[in-house]
Nucleic acid binder design. Structure first.
Length: 492
RNA sequence: GGCGCGGUACCCAAGUGGUAAGGGAGAGGUCUGCAAAACCUUUAUGCGCCGGUUCGAUCCCGGCCCGCGCCUCCA
């Protein structure tokens, strides 16, 4: 099964296959570590994670490089405000970023590349551009890319820049660029700012150069896929193409994937609008990491996703349904054998699931056959028709579902616990939802003991005591389910 | 102003030139000591509005209305 993925460059669905016939080599723009990641950031990383996981499910190995931008204007500004060097300012945010990825079950790329560790590569690239006549230095020592050196500029974002007047919306006063659209490759050192002494002068890299340099360092002049948020298409990715292809005269990335922005309550998320959420904000409100993951990946990546708390609640319920069903399969007793209809249903769900994802990662469509199978199987179990062979076939489908969605296996406790600890440690207790604190106030062992006591009470037909225990637990967000096979409990 | 996307039931949302997946929520029922879970029934003769093409359009074309994104740091 070959993934057909929309390619920004060609404007159509193109098959995504490794050009070397083996490993898919991809580069995805990572975070600028000036603050904690917000859900918009994570939507992009989640969608790229879906891509990775689906490729692997189809048997394609991946070599995925992700940069970490640990030097840029915002970092320099924030570090200066904090009164510390950028080398001290960014590490906590890098750690937090990886912790957040883990919480959301986003797989770590094979290669992480930090900008500050690749300055030499960037300098070499600037030198090559200068040698090619595509870069020039201004009086203050900064280097710029000469846009006129790359006639294909705009081919990714389909922009025709010929009609744009120099200086129209660009600040031309600061530096003496040849053309207002020329972009910075290297920024000359300014007093008090982080800088490196290099053959092209003392300074720091412009933003775009790092991705060109690091992508080529790890993936070569040409590679299979480059991905990122839609905002990066222009100018960031356009600039990467210009820098890279001017030097190599080869196509930079063959395939470009752009993830659409998410909206919050119908508006672009921004701090000034007051609709800005970090992952940690949501965890502290009591939403589970799995629900956040599912909510953010359930709308296909090329569509705007309108994030709401209701959507998070919906996702929570959907996950509960899947987990309850999964548990039912694992703990139930089923006679040996196979039911032809259920076998066919499982095979159909599997096929439709894969086909949906292969169609430009249509996650919304991919969910449907899974839930249809859940209903069919639940019905069969209720009627005593599900056999061991059917259970195995259905579990195999769920396994493939979770290979991409990764929400059935319950790993929600740890991220929440860590978020609460972090909040307490950093003076953010006010952000912790009371219900979450209540839930955290009881241990699994205490719950087990109360459940056992309730079972005893029920045997003695002391329903008053049994209900009291159930109500007490409910107050702490613990839900009980009685069944023939015993009592199952879960934290809401 | 330029470029682009979207408007599908109470909410989210997929989708196709031949008559509307899925999830959530609500209502009724089965089961249960009561619940929960599960299952069954139910909630769009309808897919922003108006024209057109067609035997037939939610899906194609044109116009209009509304919302959103990008064009500048931004995932």
């Amino acid at each position: 099964m070959t993934l057909r993925l929309f390619n920004t460059l060609t404007g159509q669905l193109d098959p995504l296959v490794p050009s070397d016939g083996k490993t898919l080599r991809m580069y995805a723009c990572g975070p600028t570590v000036y603050d904690y990641g917000h859900i918009g950031n994570f939507r992009t990383f989640l969608e790229i994670d879906v891509l990775r996981r689906f490729l692997r499910l189809t048997g394609i190995p991946i070599f995925h490089v992700m940069n970490i931008t640990d030097v840029d204007d915002k970092i320099i500004r924030n570090a200066a405000q904090a009164g510390i060097p950028i080398g001290e300012y960014t590490p906590p945010f890098v750690d937090a970023f990886f912790e957040d990825l883990e919480a959301l079950r986003i797989e770590r790329p094979e290669q992480i590349a930090r900008a500050t560790e690749h300055i030499g590569r960037m300098v070499e690239l600037v030198q090559k551009l200068a040698a090619a006549g595509a870069a020039y230095q201004t009086d203050d020592g900064s280097w710029y890319f000469r846009l006129s050196a790359f006639p294909e500029y705009g081919k990714l974002s389909k922009k025709d820049l010929s009609g744009i007047e120099d200086g129209a919306r660009v600040d031309v006063d600061e530096y003496e660029k040849d053309s207002a659209r020329d972009f910075a490759l290297w920024k000359a050192a300014r007093p008090g700012e982080a800088s490196w002494e290099t053959p092209i002068g003392r300074g720091r890299p412009g933003w775009h150069i790092e991705c060109s340099a690091m992508a080529m360092a790890y993936l070569g002049d040409s590679f299979d896929l480059h991905a990122g948020g839609e905002d990066l298409m222009f100018p960031h990715h356009e600039n990467e193409i210009a820098q890279s292809e001017t030097v190599t005269h080869k196509p930079f990335a063959r395939h470009w994937m752009h993830v659409r922005f998410l909206l919050v309550d119908g508006r672009k998320m921004s701090k000034s609008e007051g609709n800005f959420f970090t992952l940690r904000d949501l965890l502290l409100k009591g939403y589970k990491a799995s629900a956040i993951r599912l909510a953010l990946i359930s709308v296909p990546y090329r569509h705007q996703l309108n994030f709401t708390f209701e959507g998070l609640t919906d996702a929570t319920s959907a996950i509960e349904r899947l987990r309850t069903f999964h548990q039912r399969l694992l703990t139930g007793q089923f006679p040996a054998g196979e039911d032809p209809e259920l076998q066919a249903a499982a095979a159909k769900a599997q096929a439709e699931y894969m086909a949906a994802l292969a169609n430009d990662l249509n996650t919304a469509e991919a969910r449907a056959p899974i839930f249809e199978l859940v209903r069919a199987a639940n019905t069969a179990i209720d009627q005593g028709q599900l056999l061991a062979g059917d259970r195995d076939a259905i579990l195999a489908v769920l396994k493939d579902f979770d290979a991409v969605f990764d929400v059935i296996a319950d790993r929600d406790a740890e991220p929440t616990r860590r978020a609460v600890e972090w909040a307490k440690r950093s003076g953010r207790e006010a952000g912790i939802a009371p219900a979450l604190l209540a839930s955290q106030s009881i241990t699994d062992e205490e719950i087990e003991a109360l459940v056992a006591e309730r079972t005893q009470a029920k045997k003695q037909r002391n329903f008053a005591r049994a209900d009291q225990i159930r109500n007490d637990l409910a107050a702490k967000g613990v839900v009980l389910e009685d069944s023939r096979d015993g009592v199952r409990w879960k934290r809401k």
